[in-house]
Write a protein that binds this DNA or RNA. Structure first.
Length: 944
RNA sequence: GCGGGGGUCGCCCAGCCUGGUCAACGGCGCGAGGCUCAGGACCUCGUCCCUCAGGGGUUCGUGGGUUCGAAUCCCACCCCCCGCACCA
């Protein structure tokens, strides 16, 4: 629960509607967005990380005087929510446990989660509250859910227009299919078989009388090494008419062939063992190969028929040995056939004998053809042969080719014989979340977004080329994605969502519908305030709002809206669009963010294309990837409760920049919380020790430093370098003030007050609650979040003051070094500032070098100083261009005055008396003559 | 495999585009001191190795190269992370 101070400010902000922007003619605007989070769980620290970047940016821009719109919505469409709800209903304990133990949902609520809409509404409710409690500057008037009727209207409009443009096309495609869900089964929906996708198996038709015995293989190049054919003796096989030919395949293959749009008429079925002992004729080689029973053959994989290449396939070799060595227990005639067979090597590969399969079988330790260790042996041999293998003499026309070349060549040859077919199959078992085994289905007349369209691609690329991308490193990834994207299936059969307007059997797939919805925020306000009815939102009305097409007078009646309202909608859109910033985590580049580019390219004129994309890394927790199963899932609510709104916000701001992954660490969050809490006491204490007096150099220095910090923080914010900006605002600024307090005898209250006022505004985007309190504490009227971003003009640079502190810092550093090293008694540190002569020498030598003049003339005049020129040049480098320029350009800087003034300070810092003197002045005590070594900004020391 | 991003002083990380100000910012951790009855918080100093004068040595994945000079530029290699699609 928010603290009372947090509650107080939340109420003030809400009452004054500071985050509810409407168009203001002539006022520059800033429209920033984050992809809506999916409501199958409460928002977590990852959501917080991504969205807080926009929140900080929004508050920053608002202070800069922009009219900032930061809207929010909730993603409900898709099948995950429905799926989780369904699994809960089925009594899935893991799902239930996640709800209760990780998400913290009360048991009484979980009961109701069997209704997917309830589940989503619950998470929406708690997520909205936590975001509000964190003080996000969101215009909640525009909030919506992706299932809202008006939003559906908007999606329908989008799809109608995309179809008009020819970007929605129909096509045919193989998918992993769950027969129960009647839906494609993506990775996330699988219980087993992650990452498995359909592979195209080659079907090789062996002549078996008038039939074709159809063997399936991924390695067609091995056909020359085939010794026999395997069928599973236990399984059922069928004769069938397939696409007009007579095939023999496993019975289970028939139904899958049907799903893959083959024309199948079964003729008769029989046991696999019936085929044993018969012979079939191989294409290309023309060899007659015996059919043998092999129990290792999976009849449910592809056609359930394989040809045997014992030289290169461990399973084949082992199965052959099983028969030859009597383990298979087969009748004599079969065994006699097998006894005559031996491996035919056709591939040579370094590191293996002539029969690689034999080596692999041996090292695997497998004892028969059903031994699972053969799996590994197979992978090993295939991999070695594929990458390093060369086809040998026995492989006929393939001889001399690499294995991958031979693959292509063999397919060409087979195609010519018309003994080649194709079939999709899953190389491994895939089981759907619902528990059913999946297979490959070829979907016909599926709707696709035509991302492969070259013109569309070119235009999408333009959108990206015209946009700023933070950080720039992400740009290449975007471009690569545009090139890589193929047609995207954009409709599905199940889950929540909007129906495809012209084909109501389909639902628009969720990634495909969430591409231009930022435009919808400009009108959702009117819908929520009941100023616009869902029925009014016809395609023509959307055309008017987004394109200005048509006239309000003509539209008004049909739309059931006044002309004024129509114009208002159009103006609201025109004012806010385009999106100025869309920020998201990097894993959305290959899909959502690039889709945004595509759809804006298609549907909007260039002036309405997104201006910038912000990309951030993923969230880690204590150095590990956050996941529910690992048990390191941190909810936003949980973190907020522990560290308070400001502490949480600062901690998250300081985690990472660019595409680096953000590491959420409790230790850092605790530290952030403590920092936030100590700001106000620090300010109060500092002010109470201050006094009103005339400004001194050190006061100007603090103002100068503030200038530098504001400059750095502003630049960082503008480039979405949130961590950098937060570190500058909090840590660097704080360090400067602390130094100042130590540095001067009595801090000047006017300077402190000015600088604290700058500081609080720098911190305002990150820790708004504490800052409002501080603002109040400093006696300011109005709200900090509405005050202006600090102006550099109010913070003059004082180069001389900066030089003074720089030289003091250098002296302290050097002196500490000397004091650390030198042992023995010490009483006093004499500091000798360089003589006027040395100063001239330094300046002239540097000038000569810069002008590329000869330094000889200068040396001649100053030779008596006995300071080698190298030493001068080295010091020049050491000082750096910036400080060197400042020093040489300064008229008023007096090193001696600066250091003398600071002698008390240096003395207390070093814990030893410090006496500053100037070389060459009368009365200077320099018994060892060290002072002669002094150079500008590099005084000499003598330790007594 | 393809595509993208990276490897920095115990840990996280800045610097790299635009080479020298770099033993290299900042934070965390750790050590010493201060403040405190004490602890926490807070403040200061220190934290690669050596050094009784501000210095020296060895460092920025590895190996080469360019240069008066390289964490920064070029080449090769090694390693790590992310994405690879009908899914939010």
């Amino acid at each position: 629960m928010p603290t009372s101070r947090e509650k107080y400010w939340l109420k003030v902000w809400a009452d004054r509607r500071v985050f509810e922007p409407d168009p203001v003619v002539g006022k520059k605007k800033m429209f920033v967005t984050v992809p809506y989070p999916y409501m199958n769980a409460p928002v977590h620290v990852g959501t917080a990380f991504t969205s807080s970047r926009v929140e900080f940016y929004a508050r920053f821009r608002r202070m800069q005087g922009y009219n900032v719109l930061f809207p929010w919505a909730w993603h409900w469409t898709g099948k995950t929510i429905v799926g989780m709800s369904y699994r809960l209903k089925q009594g899935d304990k893991a799902v239930r446990r996640a709800f209760v133990e990780i998400d913290g949902v009360p048991e009484s609520e979980v009961e109701k989660f069997t209704d997917p809409e309830y589940l989503a509404s619950y998470y929406t409710k708690v997520s909205r509250q936590v975001m509000k409690d964190t003080g996000f500057s969101i215009d909640w008037r525009r909030e919506f859910r992706t299932v809202d009727p008006s939003y559906r209207r908007f999606v329908e409009w989008q799809y109608l227009r995309l179809r008009d443009l020819g970007y929605v096309v129909q096509g045919t495609h193989p998918v992993v299919w769950c027969p129960f869900d009647k839906s494609p089964t993506g990775d996330a929906d699988r219980m087993e078989g992650e990452g498995v996708s359909p592979e195209e198996f080659n079907l090789i038709k062996f002549h078996l009388g008038e039939f074709a015995l159809v063997a399936a293989t991924l390695r067609p190049e091995t056909i020359y090494g085939a010794t026999n054919i395997w069928v599973n003796p236990e399984a059922e096989y069928s004769e069938a008419r397939v696409d007009g030919e007579l095939w023999v395949v496993s019975s289970s293959a028939l139904s899958r062939l049907v799903e893959q749009k083959h024309d199948v008429t079964p003729v008769r079925s029989f046991k696999g063992s019936e085929l044993a002992g018969r012979y079939a004729l191989a294409p290309l080689t023309g060899k007659s190969l015996p059919i043998l029973p092999g129990r290792f053959v999976d009849a449910t994989l592809a056609t359930g028929v394989v040809y045997s290449v014992p030289a290169h396939a461990p399973y084949d070799l082992m199965a052959l040995r099983d028969i030859q060595e009597g383990r298979a227990g087969l009748p004599r005639p079969i065994k006699e056939i097998a006894d005559k067979l031996s491996p035919i090597p056709i591939i040579t590969v370094s590191g293996y004998s002539e029969v690689p399969a034999a080596d692999a079988v041996k090292s695997s330790g497998a004892s028969d053809s059903l031994d699972s260790r053969l799996e590994g042996a197979t992978k090993e041999v295939y991999s070695a042969e594929f990458h390093r293998g060369v086809m040998s003499k026995g492989s006929g026309p393939l001889a001399g080719l690499s294995v991958s070349e031979a693959k292509t060549k063999s397919l060409e040859l087979l195609a010519k014989t018309s003994r080649l077919g194709k079939m999709f199959e899953l190389p491994e078992t895939v089981v759907c979340r619902c528990g059913n085994r999946c297979y490959v289905k070829v979907l016909e007349n599926q709707w696709f977004l035509n991302y492969s369209n070259p013109e569309w691609k070119a235009k999408a690329r333009q959108v990206l080329e015209r946009a700023r991308i933070y950080p720039e490193e992400a740009r290449q990834w975007f471009y690569a994605t545009v090139d890589w994207l193929g047609d995207w299936p954009c409709a599905r059969r199940s889950g929540m969502g909007t129906k495809v307007p012209w084909d109501k059997d389909w639902i628009v797939e969720t990634l495909s519908d969430s591409t231009i919805y930022m435009a919808y925020y400009t009108l959702s306000k009117f819908v929520n305030l009941e100023k616009v009815a869902t029925e009014s939102l016809t395609p023509d009305v959307f055309d008017f709002i987004f394109y200005g097409k048509g006239s309000p007078a003509n539209l008004s009646k049909a739309a059931g809206m006044t002309e004024k309202r129509l114009r208002e909608l159009r103006e609201e859109f025109s004012y806010w669009y385009p999106v100025d910033l869309r920020n998201s985590a990097k894993e959305l580049i290959p899909n959502h963010l690039t889709f945004v580019a595509f759809h804006h390219a298609a549907l909007f004129p260039e002036k309405d294309w997104p201006r910038a994309f912000g990309i951030n890394g993923m969230i880690m927790v204590e150095g590990k990837k956050m996941s529910k199963t690992k048990g390191n899932f941190v909810t936003w609510r949980g973190a907020l409760e522990r560290y308070g709104a400001d502490g949480f916000r600062l901690a998250i701001a300081l985690t990472a920049d660019g595409m680096d992954d953000a590491d959420w660490r409790e230790r850092n969050a605790e530290d952030a919380k403590a920092k936030v809490e100590s700001v106000i006491p620090f300010v109060k204490k500092s002010l109470s020790s201050s006094e009103s007096r005339k400004a001194a150099a050190i006061d100007s220095w603090l103002v100068s430093s503030a200038h530098r910090r504001v400059e750095a923080a502003t630049l960082a914010m503008e480039e979405m370098k949130i961590r950098r900006a937060a570190a500058t605002a909090f840590l660097d600024m704080w360090n400067d003030i602390r130094y100042y307090l130590r540095r001067c005898d009595a801090p000047r209250s006017e300077t402190l007050t000015d600088v604290f006022n700058v500081w609080l505004r720098l911190m305002a985007p990150f820790t708004p609650f504490m800052v409002e309190d501080l603002n109040h504490e400093l006696g300011n009227k109005g709200l900090a979040c509405q005050s202006g971003w600090p102006s550099l003009r109010d913070l003059p640079i004082d180069g001389d003051a900066e030089l003074a502190e720089a030289v003091i810092g250098r002296v302290l550093e050097d002196a500490r070094n000397v004091l650390r090293v030198v042992k023995g008694p010490r009483r006093k540190l004499n500091v000798y500032v360089s003589s006027d002569q040395a100063r001239s020498y330094f300046a002239e030598l540097i000038a000569a070098k810069q002008k590329k003049d000869s330094v000889g003339a200068v040396m001649k005049r100053f030779g008596h100083l006995k300071i080698p020129p190298d030493k001068v040049f080295r010091l020049g480098f050491e000082l750096g261009e910036d400080m060197l320029g400042k020093y040489l350009g300064s008229k008023g800087f007096d090193e001696y005055d600066a250091l003398s003034e600071a002698s008390n300070f240096m003395s207390s810092e070093l814990g030893i008396a410090v006496s500053v003197q100037k070389t060459g002045d009368k009365g200077t005590v320099d018994p060892t003559g060290k002072g002669k070594e002094a150079l500008p900004m590099k005084p000499a020391f003598y330790l007594e």
